[in-house]
């Protein structure tokens, strides 16, 4: 391995411009991927915030004994999908309406609003099917007049989430493939620059795995360096967006590390494909 490492350093020393070009090219392709990742992350974050607002409201018939409502709320709270079940009395419902619809405060003077049990679902249990299932179960309480959960809104939210997820995956995959192709092309240049050396290596009995080693190491190193550079560029871009456009969040350290690993992986993959193709041809 030390020889492979020495070979990589020799190669960088001999062709500094080509090496710098390779790292920059990788960095820019990963930067594009990073920017896309940032957009996807922030869309996801926004959708999660919206999801937090998914709520089922079961309206309680007037005159229902508070003990019955309390018992029902604690039953509902024990459903596996449910995060919390809160009792909203008629008075509380009125106050809430007055504070939420401040401009129409007067309309609520002397009004009577029904009490309710407001249910929040656990994260991951807020899809339309689960929401509907829990709502249907709540309808079975005899004192429940009506159950509302914004069926149409939740379905739209989930459709949007699915579209964002699928297009995110497809675009991410496309960017990753483009990155692999670019890295493969830059490594291919390095392979071609050393094709004479490779043919001599073969003639004197080097195995293909020995020949591959320095190129794989080079691809890995370039992937990591390109990844680091891309991470810095993405961070700068996010800082500028935060300052001049809109408040956004950045990758967590774990995701950033995964990004670097991804860079290294596509560096390796690009190299493996390029060297493999060359070795098969010669």
């Amino acid at each position: 391995m030390s020889r492979a490492f020495r070979d990589v350093l020799d190669d960088v020393r001999r062709t500094p411009l080509l090496s710098a070009l390779s790292v920059t090219t990788i960095a820019f392709s990963l930067f594009a991927l990073g920017l896309f990742g940032l957009v996807a992350l922030n869309i996801r974050q926004a959708l999660e915030k919206l999801e937090d607002r998914v709520e089922i409201r079961a309206f309680v018939a007037a005159g229902t004994a508070p003990e019955d409502v309390g018992q029902a709320a604690s039953d509902v709270a024990s459903f596996p999908e449910v995060q919390s079940a809160r009792i909203v009395t008629q008075e509380m419902a009125l106050k809430r309406a007055q504070s939420e619809l401040g401009e129409f405060r007067d309309v609520f003077e002397g009004a009577v609003l029904p009490g309710s049990i407001d249910v929040q679902l656990k994260p991951g249990q807020r899809d339309p099917a689960t929401v509907k299932r829990v709502a249907e179960r709540m309808k079975t309480f005899s004192f429940v007049d009506d159950v509302r959960y914004g069926e149409e809104w939740i379905e739209k939210l989930y459709r949007l989430r699915n579209i964002a997820g699928i297009s995110g995956l497809a675009l991410g995959l496309a960017f990753a493939i483009v990155s692999v192709i670019i890295i493969g092309a830059t490594i291919r240049m390095a392979v071609l620059a050393r094709s004479k050396e490779i043919s001599i290596m073969r003639l004197v009995g080097a195995t293909d795995s020995y020949i591959r080693r320095p190129f794989l190491l080079e691809g890995f190193a370039k992937g990591v360096m390109g990844g680091l550079l891309a991470l810095v560029l993405t961070w700068i871009a996010q800082t500028l967006i935060n300052r001049y456009v809109i408040e956004t969040i950045f990758f967590t350290p774990r995701v950033a590390l995964l990004g670097l690993l991804f860079g290294a992986l596509i560096g390796l993959l690009g190299s493996a494909i390029s060297v493999g193709r060359h070795l098969r041809r010669v």
Binding site: R3, I200, M201, V204, G205, A206, Y210, I211
Partner: peptide
Amino acid sequence: GFALEVIG
């Protein structure tokens, strides 16, 4: 030496 290097 290259011929010896590449065979380890």
